[in-house]
């Protein structure tokens, strides 16, 4: 690990101010990903600005009936919060499906969104990687890519975004609040992460010095149910091979509202708008859910060793939607 300076910020403004003039600074949240990347040599900040104790650890009702989640709320606390358990079950389930009890106690909401891919080439500094060192190539495309993307990848990068939480937030239409040198702005979580294109080094639209201050969930609509299901190589404590977050409202046997997002398939939490088109107004049947999944996954371009993800994601989507419909 390279030596670095350290500063514990007491406010968001202080943190942003400290960043000025330090292009190789990084914000430190819980550190469960960043400290690991520093050990691996993948991240080498010369200045860590500790934002883990900023007064952004509240979970508060918004005036319109939604929920505001501060950036430093720990994953375990967010998953256990009564409002999240009851109104945004998909978010609680997604958080609880990720990492371990120890890691969830440490990892923050903001940090979860900003975690980097677990692609083995990205994490191994002895290997080329366009995400880590632009222009060096992507050995994963022809190499070990069983866990990697089937949707939206590019010639430059086939990495997946590892977060479970972000997949639930994508289906729930969450918004990400940013504060930076140019002021505050809000970005839909579905616009926050970006596809790799020819700039896989940029995971998100965040600008230098910008800090995530919180996430807002819109009100949960009456009659909707939501859930999250994840497939992985072992029963617990593993990243998703594929996952699905779904929000569903069924009335009189017909799908009235639906939101669907896939995890483990792409460089971003993949909001499945084509599937939603099929679902809305259609009979709430497994045949509909299968057609919806197929409409979305028609865009899949599996690599040599990860084609299994397509039927896996299809089956996950069908099972989650059927389960949600059975509870309405």
């Amino acid at each position: 690990m390279k030596p670095f300076a350290y500063f514990r910020a007491e406010s968001a403004d202080e943190a942003i101010g400290a960043f000025a003039g330090h292009p190789r600074a990084q914000y430190l949240g819980g550190g469960t990903n960043l400290v690991d990347l520093m050990k691996l040599g993948v991240a080498a900040p010369d200045f860590l600005i500790d934002v883990s104790r900023l007064p952004l650890d509240g979970i508060d009702e918004t005036p319109d009936g939604g929920l505001h989640i501060g950036a430093t709320v720990r994953n375990s606390d967010l998953a256990a919060h009564p409002a999240v358990r009851t109104r945004y079950a998909a978010l609680s389930q997604a958080l609880l499906s990720g990492a371990s009890g120890q890691l969830r106690n440490t990892a923050t909401t903001g940090g979860n969104l900003l975690q980097r891919t677990r692609c083995t080439y990205f994490q191994d500094v002895s290997k080329p990687c366009n995400k880590r060192e632009p222009g060096t190539g992507c050995p994963a495309r022809e190499g070990v890519h069983r866990d990697l993307a089937v949707l939206g990848h590019s010639a430059h990068c086939v990495a997946t975004h590892p977060s479970d939480m972000a997949v639930a937030l994508a289906a729930l239409d969450a918004a990400v609040h940013l504060h930076g040198p140019q002021g505050a702005r809000t970005v839909a979580v579905t616009d926050f992460h970006r596809l790799p294109g020819d700039r896989p080094d940029q995971d998100t639209v965040i600008r230098p010095g910008e800090l995530i201050t919180g996430v807002t969930l819109p009100p949960a609509l009456p009659g909707t149910r939501c859930g999250y299901r994840k497939a992985r190589d072992r029963a617990s404590y593993a990243f998703a091979l594929a996952s699905v977050a779904a929000v569903l409202r069924v009335e009189g046997g017909v799908v009235r509202d639906a939101a669907l997002a896939f995890g483990g398939l792409a460089h971003v939490p993949w909001r499945a708008r084509a599937a939603e088109e099929v679902l809305r107004g259609a009979p709430a049947t497994e045949e509909t859910y299968a057609r919806a999944a197929d409409a979305e996954l028609a865009a899949a371009e599996p690599l040599r060793d990860n084609g299994f993800k397509v039927p896996l994601a299809r089956n996950l989507a069908i099972s989650v939607l059927a389960e949600l419909a059975s509870r309405t």
Partner: peptide
């Protein structure tokens, strides 16, 4: 609270 001390600075 339990935590992985190897990842805490």
């Amino acid at each position: 609270r339990r935590a992985n001390s190897c990842l805490l600075l």
